[in-house]
Design a binder for these strands. Structure first.
Lengths: 114, 114
DNA sequence: CTAATACTTGGCTATGTTGCCAAATAAGCA
DNA sequence: TGCTTATTTGGCAACATAGCCAAGTATTAG
């Protein structure tokens, strides 16, 4: 397979992988519009601060967030607000699935399943 | 934290996670517009057929693809073509990062870094 | 029925991920 | 200076993932 093509899929996968965790999705959601320091995010996530910090470094390494030190605190913000589009994409898939599910159930209720 | 909110992030993460692999991104790309059988995808991926099959089952369990048996072959297709939006999202992040990178390099060349 | 083809499943190993705790670092305050 | 607070890093255990091979299933062809 074409090396360049392969590299492109790998680059995309790295971005998507960085978002593929509920805690990191919550972080991205919290960061919409405003920047937040680690302890604020920790309060929402109810995880050890070291764990939150690691999630943030995953997002940072992927180029999704950036950090800025303010005194003792570190404020994180979205580097590319477009990541929130991922939510809509995921939501659409979930909706499609829910709709199909409902349809199947409807057919079953009408005696379609044997 | 709110249980419902948590569940929503988990549901989204499951979808995104299913896409977070170069092989599966390639599959989704191959499936744009047309359906493909497992051996066609295998030829592109250059992976063991059992591995391809497992990637497909990950996508299927996430509700991203659906399968239809035609004789001996199994044809897979996108259940929700909107997943290709993910590519654009990922691409935007990559672009943003590349642009920032270029900017930093520009500053360095002008003697900004010490 | 037998053989061949297409695919899936089970099993295994290697590798990656997530969480916590403890220790290290950094900045502001007394 | 030494103390406190905020954050990061290292280490480790538990668990998940990705790949291959071998074996199982299913459908068509002879």
């Amino acid at each position: 397979m074409d090396t360049e093509r392969k590299a492109r899929y790998e680059a995309r996968a790295r971005i998507i992988k960085a978002l593929a965790h509920p805690a990191r999705l919550l972080i991205v959601d919290e960061l919409r519009g405003k920047s937040r320091c680690v302890c604020e995010l920790q309060a929402e996530l109810e995880l050890d601060m070291s764990t939150v910090s690691k999630h943030l470094s995953v997002l940072k390494n992927a180029g999704i967030v950036q950090d800025a030190k303010k005194g003792v605190q570190v404020y994180y913000s979205l580097r590319c607000p477009c990541v929130t589009d991922f939510f809509q994409c995921a939501e659409k898939v979930l909706l499609t699935r829910a709709r199909d599910q409902a349809e199947v159930l409807g057919r079953t209720a009408r005696g379609g399943l044997r």
